[in-house]
Computed example of a mutant assay.
Amino acid sequence: MTMVRKAAYELRLHISLKYITANVLDKSDGSLVAQVSSIEHAIKRAFELGRTTKNPHAATVVGEVLSRRIKLEALHRNHQGLDDGIHANVYKQVQKKGVEDAAANAKIVWGIINTLRDNGIRIIVEDDNGDL
């Protein structure tokens, strides 16, 4: 009997002074499953101000678009294991190198995670040690 190993997926965020980028990676092979960035023309146009990271609505939009792309990718490429959840180390995402305002970063990170959850994506939050 052959055991099928479930792939583990990970949410990684990059928050610059101007833009938010969210990636979902397949940790088994390092491939990109879905990606969205507030620098994309269609998303960027939705915000009147240039700095999307200062706009709390930006995290929600990034989360909504990412959830749709995750669902489409799961359908088209049959990524088994996405239903088992996407891992997110919130502490690591908030405390990334060069972050000056961890509280503002935390609002963005949690905004994206909560929007993903609201759109039916299972997110497994881990602490800094990788524990649930």
Rank of each mutant, 00 (worst) to 15 (best):
E10K: 15
E10V: 09
H79R: 12
L66P: 00
N105D: 09
N78S: 12
L17Q: 11
E48Q: 15
G85L: 01
A74D: 14
R117C: 08
A106I: 03
T60G: 06
H76N: 13
A74S: 14
N89W: 08
E64F: 09
N55V: 02
A74G: 14
L75C: 05
H79P: 02
A8Y: 10
L132I: 06
K96N: 09
A103H: 12
N129G: 04
L13R: 00
H79F: 15
I39T: 01
G81V: 04
V99T: 13
G30N: 13
I108H: 01
I43A: 04
E10D: 07
K107Q: 14
I123T: 00
E64C: 11
G81N: 05
E64M: 13
K27S: 12
N78Y: 07
K27I: 07
N119I: 05
H14S: 10
E64P: 00
I15S: 06
S28T: 14
Y19A: 08
H87S: 11
A22Y: 03
L116H: 13
A88T: 05
S38E: 04
M3P: 09
L49N: 15
T52A: 08
I15V: 15
E100M: 10
V94G: 02
A104P: 00
L17H: 11
Q93H: 00
D29Q: 09
Y91W: 06
I43M: 01
Q35I: 10
I20W: 02
R68N: 12
G50F: 14
D127R: 07
A42P: 07
V125K: 13
V61S: 00
D26M: 01
K6E: 11
I43F: 00
E40V: 02
I43E: 01
L32N: 08
P56V: 03
H57T: 08
Q93N: 06
D26A: 03
M3C: 05
K97I: 09
D83K: 13
L25H: 07
H57N: 08
E100I: 10
G63V: 01
Q35W: 07
I112G: 00
L11A: 10
V36N: 03
S16Q: 03
E73I: 02
I39V: 03
A22K: 03
G111K: 05
V33K: 03
M3H: 12
I124M: 09
N55L: 05
T52V: 07
R77L: 11
V33L: 01
N89Y: 05
K44N: 15
L82H: 10
R45Q: 14
G111I: 00
K44Q: 14
V109L: 07
R51S: 14
V125I: 13
P56F: 08
S67Q: 04
V36R: 03
N23G: 00
L116V: 10
R12C: 13
D29E: 10
S31A: 12
A34W: 10
R68P: 05
S16Y: 04
G120L: 06
A46Q: 15
H41D: 13
K18Q: 11
V90I: 14
R68C: 04
T115G: 00
H41S: 14
D131T: 03
G85D: 03
R68A: 08
A22V: 04
I39E: 15
I20M: 10
I112D: 04
S31I: 05
S31W: 07
D101W: 05
S28C: 05
K18A: 12
Y91K: 11
T53V: 15
R68Q: 14
S38M: 02
K44A: 09
F47D: 07
V125C: 06
L32Q: 08
I123F: 06
S31R: 15
I43N: 00
F47K: 10
R51P: 03
